[in-house]
Design a protein around this nucleic acid. Structure first.
Lengths: 150, 150
DNA sequence: CATTTACGTTGACAATTGTAAACCATAGTT
DNA sequence: AACTATGGTTTACAATTGTCAACGTAAATG
């Protein structure tokens, strides 16, 4: 693996962040207590995670006496958008619609959010293309170099 | 790390799968050629990835003479749904709506997909709750054990 | 003041992932 | 038959991640 690939946050780190985001900052003790209500992680483990999050600059610390108060340096929404888009960027464009459809159908949303989605979709419909092309292969080349599906 | 955590596919492996999914199976040579049109990966690297995907049972092989024909054991859509839902499962429920809104606004969808989304949303609106609760903390406990936000 | 407690820092270790070279057997060529 | 190209298998190695224990120091308590 090449250095500095610096994946933003690992799943475990994410769990820790959720607590801190929700509490708008917390001491390590708080995080440890709350975390242990969800996961059977040792104190050490959680401390390590906190340390790594600070290294990765996802958390900043404010000294309160001898202990630290940990605060997020990024908003939860920004972080969420980032991971989600990072994931979607590597999915077949042609099938993204289907995946979203599934999300829409399986998750629960507030009336307000649904309303916004409806408005947005109405708008989008006006300029939506008839179909989306699959971008899993370097198409132009494919036809030349190899085979049939084009 | 504990053994058998067997993350389904790593990002690089995913790239390889996309090619194979789209071509509905391919020989290593094909995968290597196509892959190298997108990424500066050595032949070796791609072979390793193929090997790991077979280990992970994401690919099955059919012997064709001495070489293999690699085929996916899972559909691309199933795999996509899986990763996407896995990701969403760890996101704050309260904010999922916003994230989807962003996806809807930034990505391009076909008219057909949008139409389906609209229908689905109309249906969902009927039973949608006014608001969604944040599930980042073990709420019940939180109030007792710690603080204020409840 | 001596002791315990809290908490940040270091060190550890196995598994996963990115990346690739080396090796080996077989099929096609000369 | 000898040689080369093709393609699968092994080995390698650094960085990341999941998990912790041990350590050291400052704070709180008896």
């Amino acid at each position: 693996m090449k250095k500095g690939d610096a994946t933003l946050m690992s799943p475990s780190e994410w769990e820790v962040m959720r607590i801190i985001w929700t509490k708008k900052g917390a001491s390590s003790t708080e995080v440890i207590h709350l975390m242990q209500l969800k996961r059977a992680w040792s104190e050490s483990t959680i401390k390590t995670l906190l340390g790594r999050l600070v290294e990765k600059k996802m958390l900043q610390t404010i000294k309160e006496g001898r202990r630290f108060f940990y605060q997020p340096t990024v908003t939860e929404s920004d972080a969420m958008n980032k991971v989600v888009f990072e994931l979607f960027d590597h999915l077949c464009s042609m099938k993204k619609g289907t995946v979203i459809l599934k999300l829409l159908s399986d998750l629960t949303f507030s009336r307000a959010d649904i309303k916004k989605m409806q408005i947005l979709l109405n708008e989008k419909m006006k300029t939506a293309p008839v179909s989306i092309t699959c971008d899993c292969l370097p198409m132009n080349e494919v036809c030349t170099v190899h085979n049939e599906d084009c």
